[in-house]
Computed example of a mutant assay.
Amino acid sequence: MMTIKIREATEDDSQPWDSFLHQFPHVPPYGCFAWKNILEDSYRVQTHFFMAEDDEGNLCGILPAYVTKTIKGNIDLYGLRYGFLYNQPTVKHALLSHLSVFCRERIIRSITIPIGVESSPEVDMTVKKTVVLPLAETEEATWKSLRDKTRNMIRKGERLNLRMEQGFANLDAFYSIYTTRMKQIGVWFHAQNFFVQIAEHLKNQVDLLCVKKDGQVIAGMVILYGRNIASYPYQATLSEYRDHAPTQFLNWAAVKQCLARNILFLDMGESTEGSPVYQSKVNFGGIPKDIYYYDHPLATEEGTREKSVIPVKSNLCNGDGDLIFRKWLRPAKVLENVLRYSPLWLCQHISPRLIKTRRII
C-alpha cells in the first residue's frame, strides 16, 4: 500500500507544484503557486499550500489554502478555487484528513474547500453554480454559435465605436469602475494592490481587457489564462453606458483572446442561479455547471458554530418568537447597507480590511 507524505510547500517547490498543475489542462488557473505570494503580499494572510508525495517522493496531490480571521476573532480556512488536485482518490482522502487534524490543532472554526466539478458522496458538499462558455476551434465558427441577439449586441458596440484595449496600464480606470459598481450592488471589493500583485506574479497568465468609448474606459475585466480554459473573476461596467452593450463587446473580446491562445473554454464565473448576472452569462451562450465545496464546520469552544444573527432584546420578537426585521439584523446585511450608503472614499478604505476576514478569492 502506498504511503502518502503530506507537507507544506516552500518557494523551492514552486516549479514541481506548477508542473503537477500542468497535468490538469481543463482546470481554471487558480491553483498555481503564484497565488501564495499574491495573497501574502496583498493581504498579509497566512497561506498553507499542502503537498502530497508518494513513497518515491513524487508529487501526487496539492491543496492550496489560506487562513482568515473574522471580526470576532474566529479563524477560518479556505481553499483556492479549482486548486485541490490529486491523481487518485486515496490522495484526496489523505489531504482532507491531514487538513482536518491541522485545523483542529490550531482551533480553526471551519474548512471550506472547493472540490471542483465532481462530487464526493463520502463527504458533505455545498453546491454552487458556475457558467462555462465552450468555444469552437475558429473565430468564425464561434461567432456562428452565438445567438442572433448576442451577435446583434456585439455589432451595436462596434457601430458605437467601442474599442478594446489590453494591459494593466488601464488599472486605475478599471479600479474606479470596479469599486463604484461593487458599491452599487453592496459587495465588498478588493484593494487596488491586490490587482497589482496579480499582474506582477501571474505575468503572462493574466491580462486586463478594457472597453473604451471616445478614449474613456467604460468597462473592463481581469482574465486569467490556463492551458485549455480561461476565467474572468472580476468584471465591471459603468452603469450609464449599459445601452452601448459594453459587456457583450467585452465578452467577445475575451473569446478572441482565448482563441488566439488555443483555449477552448471560458469560465464566466460563479453566479447565483436565476440572478441577472447568471442569466446574462447563459444568454451569451454559457452552460451552467455545478461546483462542489467541502464545507466542514469545526466545533468552537462552546461546541457550536458562531451564531449568524446579532443578539437582540426579546421585545423585538413577535408572538411566534421570530425576530422582527430579522434580515436587517444579520451582520452581512448590516455591512451591505454600510457599503451602499457610505461615501466611496470610506468604502475604499474599509472594504479591503473586511475582505481579508472572509473568502478572498
Rank of each mutant, 00 (worst) to 15 (best):
Y178I: 01
L146R: 13
A169M: 09
E122D: 15
G303R: 02
Y292A: 11
P288M: 07
Q257A: 15
Y293T: 00
S145D: 14
V127A: 12
P89W: 04
R353I: 00
D320P: 00
P343Q: 00
E8A: 13
V217Q: 03
K144N: 15
K281M: 02
Q257M: 12
G73W: 13
L202C: 03
Q192A: 01
M182D: 01
Q257D: 15
A34N: 07
V211E: 00
V206C: 15
Y178A: 00
K69W: 04
T112C: 11
C103E: 14
S120R: 09
V282C: 08
L95I: 03
G31F: 07
P25K: 07
N152W: 10
L59T: 09
S231G: 02
H201C: 03
T138L: 09
L202K: 06
D41N: 14
S119L: 06
M51H: 04
V211W: 02
L160V: 06
M153Y: 10
V196D: 14
W143V: 08
F168G: 14
V282S: 08
P16H: 04
G286Q: 12
V334L: 13
S231R: 02
S97T: 15
G269L: 02
L238E: 15
I229H: 01
D76L: 14
T70M: 08
I310F: 10
R305L: 07
E140K: 12
Q46Y: 07
V309R: 11
V127E: 15
T142A: 10
T304K: 14
N204K: 10
P331K: 06
T179M: 00
G186P: 09
Y234I: 00
E140A: 13
V127F: 08
D124T: 08
I113V: 15
F168N: 13
E200S: 12
G321F: 03
P28F: 04
R242M: 15
C32E: 08
G167K: 10
D12G: 06
P233A: 00
S239E: 09
S120N: 14
G274D: 04
E105M: 10
N193H: 11
D54Y: 06
N283L: 09
W328N: 07
D290L: 08
K327D: 04
L339H: 00
C32H: 07
I108M: 11
K128Q: 15
V217E: 04
K156E: 11
T130W: 06
W17C: 04
P134R: 12
G215Y: 08
L202M: 09
